[in-house]
């Protein structure tokens, strides 16, 4: 949100974002209220039932969402400002999308292969490093992680076909 970014195009305005978030929170609160009512939200003979506290927590969540929604709807001055500019959003997505792909990859290849690919990719794509630098760093980091978690502390991490080939999975 530096000075020059204000002149850039807004990807989404504050008001839109405020309204959307308030709406999501409202739905979240409603779900909580619904399930708490199902398991019993009364004050029984010996204190509150299982759903008593969550029920009112849910109600308060909904109430706060309504108030935030209303406030945001009438706050024109702040509402027009950019929540995030297109260039900022692009930067954020540049990191976030590969991270999502990385987590998806863990499911198939296990943590070590996925994170080696992730670190290498990141260094080359965003850091403009050469293969010669990126690959050794990625492998070294993973080797360290492997020794630390798997060998030393015996913490089992997600594994895939590569670890299986080495008889580790």
């Amino acid at each position: 949100m530096s000075e020059h970014s204000r002149h850039e195009r807004a990807a989404v305005s504050y008001r839109t974002m405020e309204l959307v978030v308030a709406l999501v929170i409202f739905v979240f609160g409603a779900i909580v209220v619904y399930d708490s009512a199902r398991i019993g939200a009364q004050w029984g003979d010996d204190g509150p039932q299982g759903g008593y506290f969550p029920f009112y927590i849910g109600l308060l969540t909904c109430l706060s969402a309504v108030i935030i929604f209303a406030k945001a709807a009438f706050d024109a001055a702040r509402g027009r400002k950019a929540f995030v500019t297109t260039s900022q959003l692009a930067m954020v997505l540049k990191l976030f999308v590969p991270t999502v792909v990385f987590v998806g990859l863990i499911e198939f290849t296990g943590i070590y292969a996925a994170s080696t690919i992730f670190i290498t990719f990141f260094m080359i794509w965003l850091g403009k490093y050469s293969w010669v630098k990126a690959v050794p760093v990625a492998i070294a980091v993973n080797l360290a992680l492997f020794l630390l978690f798997e060998v030393w502390f015996k913490v089992p991490l997600p594994k895939g076909p590569i670890e299986a080939a080495f008889g580790l999975a």
């Binding site: 991270t99 943590i111 994170s115 992730f118 990141f122 850091g127 992680l145």
Partner: peptide
């Protein structure tokens, strides 16, 4: 350490942390 090296390492460690 340059951001484009440390950031992915932090993300990997966060993922491991959450997994464990």
């Amino acid at each position: 350490i340059p951001f484009s090296i440390i950031a992915p390492i932090i993300l990997v460690i966060c993922a491991i942390g959450a997994y464990t």
